[in-house]
Amino acid sequence: MPERIPTPAEIKRWRQYLADERAEASVYRDLAKRRDGEEHDILMALATAEGRHEQHWLDLLGDHAGPPMRPSSRNRLLGLLARRFGSVFVLALAQRSESRSPYATDADATDAMAADESIHEEVVRGLSARGRNRLSGSFRAAVFGANDGLVSNLSLVMGMAATGVGSQVVLFSGIAGLLAGALSMAAGEFVSVRSQRELLDASQPTRITLSAAPSLDLENNELVLVYLARGMSREAAEHRAAERLGQFTCDCDPSLSLQAENFESPNELETLGTAWGAASSSFCFFASGAIIPILPFLFGMTGIGALVLACTLVGLALLGTGAVVGLLSGASPLWRGLRQLAIGMGAAAATYLLGLAFGGLVG
């Protein structure tokens, strides 16, 4: 039971905390249902921790707990997404929610609860990173492709329209820009990812040390140089070379024991994605972005009305792609969306002014 009689404002705040803790625990349990192994156990442990926080507010409220309140709109959205999808977007939202916990400045929350929320943010960040790694290869190409298509083709359409040419010329210029840009993006992504994969493959250790070890000069053991070149300390390199040469098979220090010769980050190639995946994503998403500015012209609109509608459609799309990037990175979706909007509209406005200047010169 609480030692003092809480004020109505305190009761309201505590009951809101209680509702949010219950909602967050439910989110983690719903996410855990869609996972197994270590990730399942981590999410269930987070739900258990939220249960401890829930009990704290129940103890403070005592007889004032009353019927359950509705959680915040953010937690209701998280719960809905967790039940329906259980995707990396939910974890990204949960990470942001944990980072905005009010417990650090609330005198009624314990220091342990505030510390828990900080740690929860890092735990969820780690879980989110796994999903981001799986998405980041093709997703990077998709997002940049869509944004390039939106901005570059809107700029092209605005610039051509500003010169005073007919709407049909603007339309065909936009179609040409769509095809040229999509093919260029696809080719560039394919070459970039394929080249990076080839560089990674060329840097991978081979099994040559196993076959060459028996014939090496024991007095001038160049095998040590192999492991030094791969970044090992001299102690670890000499230890590994001795193992390869069969000088001993028993280790006292487990950190130096015989291990697979793979110095690459395990998620590096997974994060990079495939060349064809990146190329196809770039083509499709550039084209899907680039077609938006020419939609008004495709449907027969002309003049300033077509340009205004094109800018409006592109602006909404830029807000959407920026918000998605913000969600996945754990940043503010609104801020990222507005940043994308400002960059895109700024480029289009600059091109429109250049088109006016060129049109005046030609006229």
Rank of each mutant, 00 (worst) to 15 (best):
A107I: 06
R130N: 04
V151Y: 11
R130E: 14
R140F: 15
I175N: 09
L179T: 15
R134A: 14
F139N: 01
G137I: 03
G174F: 06
S138I: 13
L150Q: 09
G149E: 06
F172R: 10
L171Q: 04
V165E: 05
E117A: 14
V143E: 06
S152G: 07
N153K: 09
G131E: 06
T163F: 11
R130S: 01
I119R: 15
S97Q: 09
V157F: 05
G145I: 04
S99R: 13
A114H: 02
S101F: 00
I119V: 13
V157A: 14
D116C: 00
L127D: 05
S101G: 13
E121I: 00
S152Y: 11
G159I: 06
A92S: 15
D108V: 00
A162V: 08
S173K: 11
L127C: 04
M158R: 13
R96L: 02
A176H: 05
F89A: 14
E117V: 00
D106A: 03
G86C: 06
Y103D: 11
A141W: 04
D116G: 00
G137V: 05
A109H: 02
F89S: 07
M158I: 06
L154V: 09
V151D: 08
S101A: 13
A92D: 03
N147W: 08
S101N: 07
N147S: 05
G137P: 01
V88A: 08
A180M: 08
G86P: 03
A129F: 03
M160F: 14
A129R: 14
A176Y: 04
R100H: 09
A162H: 13
S173H: 08
V123A: 02
A129H: 08
D111S: 10
A180V: 15
V169S: 15
Q95H: 07
A92G: 15
R125F: 03
L154W: 12
L91Q: 04
N133R: 14
R96V: 01
D106T: 03
